[in-house]
Nucleic acid binder design. Structure first.
Length: 556
RNA sequence: GGCCCAUUGGUCAAGCGGUUAAGACGUAGCCCUCUCAAGGCUGAAUCAUGGGUUCGAUUCCCGUAUGGGUCACCA
């Protein structure tokens, strides 16, 4: 009985002499202590780093790190049709940008490290063949000659008859083919694939413990799934089991879309006589769509690609902290109490993770981000903006390198004050547009279509304020004194310097100090809202301020 | 459609049989104030639904609805 299977196995894989037990020796169990987890991220090189993948990668990284384990990266390049040139490199680079570098495996597009490689699946064909051969020789796998048209027909028949679809039991045509006939067909050059001879019964239930979701019960798999495709490469399922066994992964943390195939994977582990791995299935990141929610989609949502956050200049830390709040919502509380502590000190708990797909909330990210930028000191902000603009904003980069002390003054407005930190930058790309008035050329552009003075302000009053203020303006004093001077000036012109008093008796005054400041602000910056106007004038210098006042007076 | 998973304010969510149902983002109002931002205070807003179990259900069980996942020689 076994003999004919062995013959078939030898016929299909004549050059494979190694056995599974040889692989067991070659890739020995890792020397890990109890509780230390070996995790991994295993992308297929089909494009960019998806935000959801970043999320999963973060969880994997954190779990391995906090258990003192290992986190490795393997590239699942078994789908030659969908493979995108250079995608693996992009993936690893972006992962590195977010500080989620693997300890082992692919650490650069062409570099890998570790004793469990190769880490590109396309280079592991031999391993899959060894495993497949052993399965065949035990009668647990068989060649199948069905064409894709055959399986389409099968499926539409099953659908029509309302039978559970799939290649299983009596629908598995090639399952009971005599090995002699199979050999004959192969000799004739017929194309074939390798399928699992499943021993499962769909009526049986199997249960397993998901580290995030708890107990999950599902029907046993009875599908004779494909393990080796006609191109000789393994399917995901087969590769997952072989690789995570021989790479000695202990905890597979992956997206919830895999839950349905766990029974199959468990069966595969059993048939290969491997110890199964532990599983944790993370929820999918969703996005609001009308009244419902849907998966983040790369076509519709720019934030589906994590490069978006790099490009728009969110601090890496903001992204990581935001993701952490989704992973464990008590992170926020912890963060509040441990503002200066390293993020690594927070323990991610898988069983505390919410299992429903979370909506990706850009407002929340923004809040976290502006908090983080707000807390940076000028020097740090400067360095970060410099690094970011070098790649993504040449205009800002030019400002930064042409006069770094000038831009440091700008970035430093109301920043070194720890009590009232300005939080008006959400991301680095907000910097450029908000500081145009510090640069004459851009300011010219800003006033091209006129000034934004309020309609209620009379032209003559504007001119009067500016003309008189030119005489009074003194920037060689501290801010408090400057402000007192402004109050005196305000009163002198018939405006009220006391807002409370003004609100009570509006009719007694031409306006308030708010109106006066507003005129000055707009003349200098052509914006209604800016940071502290004293600081701005101080940076520009008296000469330039007066020049701008005169520009308004001339135009009016 | 079968199977699996889920369902607490607009969002992220604490909660594990008895709570005034935390907190954060957002939102509304007020205070502060030269504008904005920040900050302070206050407010509005939630247990999908129907049955059980129980002295008592947001919490436990069953059904329904809704949402998500999955049913490839893709991962």
């Amino acid at each position: 009985m076994n003999e004919k299977y062995r013959e078939l196995a030898n016929f299909i894989f004549p050059n494979i002499n190694e056995k599974i037990k040889d692989l067991e020796k070659k890739y020995p169990e890792r020397n890990m202590q109890e509780g230390e987890k070996v995790t991994r991220i295993a992308p297929s090189p089909t494009g960019f780093l998806h935000t959801g993948a970043l999320f999963t990668a973060l969880v994997n990284k954190r779990i391995s790190k906090q258990t003192n384990g290992v986190f490795f990266l393997r590239i699942e390049d078994t789908d030659t049709k969908r493979e995108v040139e250079g995608a693996a490199g992009t993936f690893i680079n972006e992962l590195n940008s977010f500080g989620i570098s693997p300890d082992e495996g692919i650490i650069g597009e062409k570099t890998e490290t570790g004793n469990y490689g190769p880490y590109y699946q396309s280079e592991r064909k031999n391993i899959y063949k060894i495993c497949a051969k052993e399965l065949i020789s035990k009668g647990l796998a068989y060649p199948c000659f069905c064409k894709s048209t055959d399986s389409e027909e099968l499926r539409s028949f099953q659908e029509k008859e309302k039978i559970r679809p799939g290649y299983y039991g009596k629908f598995a045509k090639c399952r009971n083919m005599e090995t002699t006939e199979a050999i004959k067909k192969i000799k004739n050059g017929e194309e074939y694939i390798l399928r699992l001879r499943s021993k499962g019964n769909h009526l049986n239930k199997i249960a397993y413990e998901d580290k995030i979701r708890g107990k999950i019960e599902q029907a046993e798999s009875d599908q004779d799934i494909v393990i080796i495709k006609s191109d000789g490469l393994p399917t995901y399922h087969f590769a997952h089991v072989c690789d995570d066994h021989f790479m000695r992964t202990s905890l597979v943390i992956r997206g919830e879309e895999w839950i349905a195939s766990v029974p199959l994977h468990l069966q595969l582990f059993e048939m290969l006589e491997f110890n199964p791995v532990e599983y944790a299935h993370v929820p999918t990141l969703m996005v609001q769509d009308g009244n419902g929610k849907r998966k983040l989609s790369k076509r519709k949502d720019p934030e589906a690609a994590c490069s978006y956050f790099l490009e728009t200049g969110y601090p890496i830390l903001a992204m990581i902290e935001y993701l952490l709040t989704i992973i464990n919502s008590d992170f926020e509380l912890w963060r509040k109490d441990n503002l200066d502590k390293d993020l690594e000190l927070f323990d991610v708990k898988l069983d505390k993770m919410n299992v429903a797909g979370a909506l990706f909330d850009i407002m929340k990210l923004n809040d976290i981000s502006k908090e983080i930028i707000g807390r940076m000191n000028t020097e740090t902000l400067y360095e970060n903006a410099k690094e970011w603009s070098e790649k993504y904003d040449s205009k800002l980069q030019e400002k930064i390198i042409s006069d770094s002390s000038y831009i440091k003054k700008i970035l430093g407005i109301e920043r070194e004050n720890v009590i009232k930190v300005r939080k008006d930058f959400v991301k680095y790309s907000d910097i450029g547009p908000s500081i145009t008035y510090f640069y004459d050329e851009e300011f010219q552009e800003d006033i091209k279509d006129g000034y934004v003075f309020s309609e209620e302000m009379k032209k003559d009053d504007i001119i009067e304020i500016l003309k008189e203020y030119i005489k009074e303006l003194d920037l060689n004093v501290e801010k408090d004194e400057w402000f007192n001077n402004l109050k005196t000036f305000t009163d002198k012109l018939g405006y009220s310097s006391n807002m409370k008093e003004y609100k009570k008796n509006k009719e007694l005054y031409k306006g308030s100090i708010a109106d006066v400041s507003s005129v000055i602000r707009i003349a200098v910056t052509n914006r209604k809202n800016t940071p502290d106007i004293y600081s701005i004038m101080k940076i520009l210098g008296k000469e330039k301020v007066i020049e701008r006042f005169n520009k308004v007076i001339d135009k009016k």
